[in-house]
């Protein structure tokens, strides 16, 4: 069995989520990678990848030509994977449509070659599903698979011509480079609660957010107190987030808040009250005055 992984390369480096997808794919046997645009060399360096299909002419990840191209190659593979990223979720289900198979998105655990675990109901339940399709098309959650190293492999590279795309044309992309990432898609989120005491103190979160390229969130109590605007609210009634790292600063961990962030991979809590419920879900906790901890944290980063 050979698996094919759609590998995303950003600024010359393979995205971590794609390295996790390669790790997941190696569970099925040999791994080929496919790279759209530049970056085949970065993919070829991934340990465990034997062959890289390079499509330099397909620069903007347009789903239509990408899926066409993957479909044309699909018969060689038992599994076709991608990270559960915006790109993976755009292209792979379309590929599944072309192949007439049922895709399996957001896989968090591989039981065997046919059986996968995936969250449903916003992570409130985990479904184990078995696929009867001859080619399995899946996206995997990066946080659930340890990524392969960025270097150490030496795959062969085969260059493929990009098919033309007439129906879909790339116009432009606007990356929020200087701005903060969106709360829901940020890799790191730092949230403040009532412990910040006023709106001005919310600025204390910014230097740390800058260093970690983090989005800034807030608890409902902080929003209700007018410390932060409503769109920053993380929680049951606000935004549901599941970043790689969630840093909760001066918030107690009301259950409404926990409902919105409990699926984060790593949770850090900073609070003066050692009994605060947030510590019950935190992987790492610092009991202390946030006004002292935040500046030292910024320096340590």
């Amino acid at each position: 069995m050979t698996a094919l992984v759609l590998v995303e390369v950003e600024n010359g480096a393979v995205r971590q989520a794609s390295r996790s997808a390669v790790a997941a794919a190696s569970r099925f046997g040999a791994v080929d990678a496919i790279v759209f645009g530049d970056g085949a060399q970065a993919a070829a360096a991934l340990p465990g990848v034997t062959r890289v299909l390079s499509v330099p002419g397909l620069v903007n990840d347009l789903a239509e030509p990408a899926a066409d191209l993957l479909a044309a190659r699909a018969k060689d593979y038992s599994h076709i994977l991608a990270a559960a990223s915006a790109t993976g979720k755009n292209i792979l289900p379309r590929l599944a449509g072309l192949l007439d198979v049922q895709p399996i998105p957001d896989v968090v655990e591989i039981k065997d070659a046919d059986t996968f675990v995936r969250p449903i109901y916003a992570g409130n339940a985990l479904a184990t599903v078995r696929s009867s399709d001859s080619i399995k098309v899946l996206t995997v959650r990066g946080s659930n698979f340890d990524p392969v190293a960025a270097e150490g492999g030496s795959a062969t590279v085969e260059t493929i011509e990009a098919p033309a795309s007439e129906k879909s044309v790339f116009v432009k992309v606007e990356l929020s480079a200087s701005d903060r990432p969106e709360l829901e898609s940020a890799r790191v989120v730092i949230s403040g609660g009532k412990g910040l005491k006023d709106a001005a103190n919310f600025k204390l979160l910014e230097p740390i957010a800058d260093k970690l390229n983090a989005a800034i969130g807030a608890s409902r109590a902080a929003v209700d107190s007018g410390f932060a605007p409503n769109e920053m609210q993380v929680g049951q009634t606000g935004k549901i987030v599941a970043p790689e790292l969630y840093i909760a600063v001066g918030l107690s961990g009301a259950i409404q808040h926990l409902a919105g962030m409990k699926d984060s991979r790593v949770i850090v809590a900073i609070n003066t009250d050692p009994e605060a419920p947030i510590f019950k879900v935190a992987d790492y906790g610092i009991v202390g005055d946030l006004f002292e901890v935040l500046p030292t944290l910024e320096k340590a980063l």
């Binding site: 992570g123 184990t128 599903v129 078995r130 992987d283 906790g285 610092i286 009991v287």
Partner: peptide, 19 residues
């Protein structure tokens, strides 16, 4: 094309460590 083998509740988070 998919058979649901089982549906389970996610494991509760374990309390971590204080640093």
């Amino acid at each position: 094309r998919l058979t649901v083998v089982s549906v389970a509740e996610p494991a509760e988070r374990k309390e971590g460590v204080k640093v």
